[in-house]
């Protein structure tokens, strides 16, 4: 989609990773925004950790049912053909490799594919919820994040300094400035957001970046 910037561009790019029929888990915020940008003909099975396979759209208050809630405790709905399971089965889907992809926000991510998004010791400790299990079991782990912190410091590092959520698990990193593929050799710059150059990315990224001969345009 032309003309997108910022978080909308991140969500749009992430959505292009999905294939029709993929079984995915999307967190709140930018990850959930991906469903607004799905390519033509792509429909997903959305998983909610509480035990929904086939989450639908958020119901209106008059249709809200206290017995159908999402992972955050908000009103949820179940699509036609969707199903319910208990919480052990929900994490069997996740850990057992049955979930095709997840999109995670983060505090830090690094060139080895490590991700740290659950705590800042002494400051922030909401708990990891289901994030560590997603990191352990989902096939494609897409990190959707602002490229830098508000201070301007890079969130894409040589090595995470915060406690890890998952080790060597991230497959793709999408920011408002570029898309990196995480490979055994390191981060490969695959696409640039409109308006950014390779030099811009190298200047705002602490991690080592591999620049291939051809770098595409992110949309």
């Amino acid at each position: 989609m032309a003309g997108l910037t910022g978080r909308a561009l991140i969500a749009s790019r992430c959505a292009r990773f999905f294939k029709d029929g993929d079984f995915v888990n999307l967190g709140i915020g930018v990850p959930m925004m991906c469903v607004n940008y799905l390519p033509e003909g792509v429909e997903l099975w959305l998983e909610a950790e509480i035990g929904i396979v086939g989450c639908g759209s958020t119901p209106k208050w008059e249709d809200a049912d206290p017995d159908i809630i999402d992972a955050g405790g908000q009103p949820a709905s179940i699509i036609k053909g969707g199903s319910i399971c208990d919480h052990t089965t929900s994490f069997a889907f996740i850990r057992g490799g049955h979930v095709d992809a997840t999109v995670l926000g983060t505090l830090q991510v690094d060139q080895e594919g490590n991700i740290a998004n659950w705590t800042i010791p002494g400051k922030l400790a909401p708990g990891m919820g289901g994030a560590m299990d997603l990191c352990a079991g989902v096939k494609k782990i897409i990190v959707a994040t602002d490229h830098c912190e508000k201070s301007g410091a890079s969130k894409i590092l040589k090595k995470c300094t915060l406690p890890l959520t998952g080790a060597k698990c991230v497959t793709d990193i999408v920011t408002e400035r570029c898309y990196f593929e995480v490979t055994d050799e390191g981060l490969v710059l695959r696409e640039l957001a409109p308006g950014y150059t390779v030099e811009d990315i190298l200047a705002c990224t602490e991690a080592d970046v591999i620049v291939p001969d051809e770098v595409g345009v992110m949309e």
Partner: peptide, 21 residues
């Protein structure tokens, strides 16, 4: 959170799938 940081509540965080199992 406040009680945890004040040392009034001991919290052990467990990943959600591990919690279930």
């Amino acid at each position: 959170r406040d009680q945890m940081f004040a040392g009034e509540l001991n919290v052990e965080f467990v990943p959600q799938g591990t919690f279930a199992e």
